[in-house]
Computed example of a mutant assay.
Amino acid sequence: MTRAATLAEIAREAGVSTPTVSKVLNGRADVAPATRERVEELLHQHGYQRRRGSSAPSSPLLELVFHELESAWAMEVIRGVENVVREEGMNVVLSESAGRLSLGQSWTDGVLSRRPIGVVLVLSGLDQAQQAQLTSRDIPFVVMDPAGDPGQDVPAVGTTNWNGGLAATRHLLDLGHRRIGMIAGPRPMMCSRARIDGYRAALETAGVTVVPALIREGDFHHESGYREGLELLRLPDRPTAIFTGNDLQALGLYEAARELGLRIPEDLSVVGFDDLPVARWVGPPLTTVRQPLTEMAEVAARMVIDLSRGHQPATLRVDLATTLVERSSTAPPPRADEG
């Protein structure tokens, strides 16, 4: 793309030196935040895009950015991206947008300094300033399982979270459960809200009252499944079944049930979400909603590679289907359940 303004012109307009503008373009950290923001805005306004040339890496990089890089969930995503980049002769760089590895620095600083062919951003989102940074460097991006609404113009890959929540809860209803609890993920996240909505829709369609006290908010980690599970199972009229927002919370719930002397599925039925490999190994094996994480990552990686080559996708939003996987953690309730 032809530059609408030279670096010197942008520098004059921003009231800084040309080397400072160059530092911003190259993702250097030694620029004051206010100056960086002013330069970024001018780069965006002028539609400045870096030309790819001899400074590009000899082995192309695809940047995979996680909100937090941990758990088997992330490994399934990494596997999917690796499947694609291996065929393309590329390499993958992993980074965090938050969490213990971010060191208080914007994740975009590292991305801009490495100049990858594109970015796949997982379980997070892009604000306007970050979008402007990537766009001005001609770095395409795709959001996988976006935390919030990515916007109509942002390519995104997700899954049918609402249908998954509906299927999980209907399975428990079909077994005869009526007092069904839920340990959800963080409410601000789109996937978490969609799973809660699917749970609610299943209960309402079956004529079962939604009891707010049976819905608890977790954080998609094992500890919140354990903590919220203990609270639900200590209720005077405890639930006979619980749907958790992901498999890690289900494992925490397993621990809470064992601590209270409850058997799964004889005393408590449990359904998870994700179908991580551990879901098959725990005792009893976990009934869960399969989220096709590896396939989602493959689609996102192919999409961002196509964008880097100037090919626009047929659609900017792709949602892959979820599937209920029935195992041994669910059974009919042990007694008549009055909801």
Rank of each mutant, 00 (worst) to 15 (best):
L293E: 04
R193P: 01
L268V: 10
L268D: 02
D149R: 04
Q291K: 13
A4Y: 13
M296W: 03
E298L: 13
H221D: 14
I264P: 05
G165S: 07
H311N: 08
D197G: 00
R238C: 05
V77Q: 09
N163C: 06
E259Q: 12
W162F: 14
P332Q: 06
F220A: 03
R100M: 11
I10Y: 12
E217C: 00
I264D: 03
L64W: 07
L203I: 04
R12P: 00
Q131R: 15
L324D: 00
R179K: 14
Q105T: 15
R290P: 06
T315Q: 09
P236F: 00
I10S: 09
A257R: 12
V65R: 03
T160N: 14
T315Y: 00
L173V: 04
R28E: 13
I78N: 02
D275W: 09
V16E: 12
D237H: 15
E259M: 05
P60S: 00
F66S: 08
L230Q: 08
N163A: 15
L25W: 03
V278E: 14
I10F: 12
P212T: 09
C191M: 08
E259I: 04
L62W: 03
R216Q: 15
L25F: 02
T205W: 04
G339A: 12
V211P: 00
T18H: 03
P236Q: 07
V81I: 15
A129N: 12
G176N: 06
I196T: 12
A257M: 12
E259D: 14
S102L: 15
L253C: 05
E41H: 14
A300K: 11
E63S: 13
Q152N: 14
G181Y: 05
L123S: 11
S17C: 12
V143A: 10
C191D: 07
P265F: 04
T209N: 07
Q131I: 05
L123I: 07
G165I: 12
L172K: 02
T169W: 02
L324H: 00
W107V: 14
A331E: 02
R335A: 13
P116Q: 13
L235E: 04
T294G: 04
M182P: 02
Q133S: 11
A279F: 09
P332I: 02
P33Y: 14
V289P: 05
A257P: 10
L134S: 03
S124E: 11
G283W: 15
A147Y: 09
E223I: 11
E326Y: 00
L69S: 07
Y254D: 10
A5N: 04
N163K: 13
